[in-house]
């Protein structure tokens, strides 16, 4: 574990650079300090995980990075540019799949293509090409042939796979995942770790993953940030040195389990301090 995590200087090539950010919600008696001097730097093509006690400001951090709201203090840079509004390039997926029930699964996945340029203006004329791309993506998460089903005809795990496809279809440079697998059963969750790792290794976009599952964090991430209880600060950063692709077997290796325990200790201490 790094001894002085707050002194975590941003490398010059950071793709996502959260620099000394604080965030306050509300005012007066309902004033909540959600984040307090939080700093995180993720290199281009890196895979970062953020773990921490419930309510410490992880989801808020995601919203700040994607520019959905401004930080109270500090700055956020993505790809070198200071974030001043919604990013326009990010893919996002949440615990709740939020598919649109009136669209088929395929049309749901293609929704970002109707919004993001240059796809939006090319979509009508090159539809076949894009449909092919969407179907390939569906197949890669184990949903081949389900494209013309309605979302409510899919199981919860299948909906979450589709939601992951939707966040990837426009080949974003930045993928923000907020507990995307939290509502799934253990087997599906572990299968989707493998799917995500595979897609990421092929495309090498930058990922920020929020999770409560420490095994998930260690399996997927290059670097794990531990946040304190509210107001959230980064209290530790841990590099995960294991080679890729990592397998589920690896998660039972002693070095792997050690890291999980180390993180668990940190979080229990943070929760006790709260």
């Amino acid at each position: 574990m790094d001894p002085a995590p707050t002194a975590d200087p941003a490398p010059p090539d950071a793709f996502v650079d959260i620099d000394d950010v604080s965030l306050v919600y509300g005012r007066g008696t309902s004033r909540t300090v959600a984040l307090h001097h939080a700093s995180i730097a993720v290199p281009r093509g890196g895979f970062a995980a953020v773990v921490g006690p419930s309510g410490c400001g992880k989801s808020s951090l995601m919203k700040l990075v994607t520019g959905l709201m401004p930080p109270t203090r500090g700055t956020i840079r993505v790809d070198g540019a200071t974030v001043t509004g919604p990013l326009k390039i990010a893919g996002m997926a949440f615990q709740n799949p939020t598919l649109l029930p009136w669209r088929s699964t395929l049309d749901n996945i293609m929704l970002p293509l109707e919004i993001v340029e240059p796809h939006a203006s090319r979509l009508r004329r090159n539809r076949a090409e894009y449909v092919g791309r969407a179907e390939a993506l569906l197949a890669s998460v184990g949903l081949d042939g389900f494209g013309n089903r309605n979302p409510w005809q899919l199981s919860g795990g299948m909906q979450q796979r589709a939601s992951l496809c939707r966040s990837l279809i426009h080949e974003p440079d930045l993928l923000m995942l907020d507990e995307p697998f939290a509502a799934l059963d253990a087997f599906t969750r572990e299968e989707l770790w493998g799917v995500l790792q595979k897609v990421w290794m092929e495309r090498r976009f930058t990922v920020v993953l929020v999770t409560h599952d420490l095994r998930e964090a260690v399996y997927l991430a290059d670097r794990i940030y531990v946040m304190s209880a509210r107001p959230g600060r980064i209290v530790a950063a841990r590099d995960v040195p294991f080679a890729r692709p990592r397998s589920l077997e690896d998660t039972f290796a002693p070095e792997f389990v050690d890291i999980v325990h180390e993180l668990r200790d940190h979080i229990s201490r943070e929760r006790a301090a709260a």
Binding site: T66, G67, I89, T98, P112
Partner: peptide, 22 residues
């Protein structure tokens, strides 16, 4: 759902587009 709105906004969708699509 606010989360769906977040997804669309982070893709750069305008208010009008969110209204039309969702």
């Amino acid at each position: 759902e606010p989360e769906l709105e977040d997804v669309l906004r982070s893709l750069g969708a305008s208010k009008r587009k969110i209204l039309m699509k969702v």
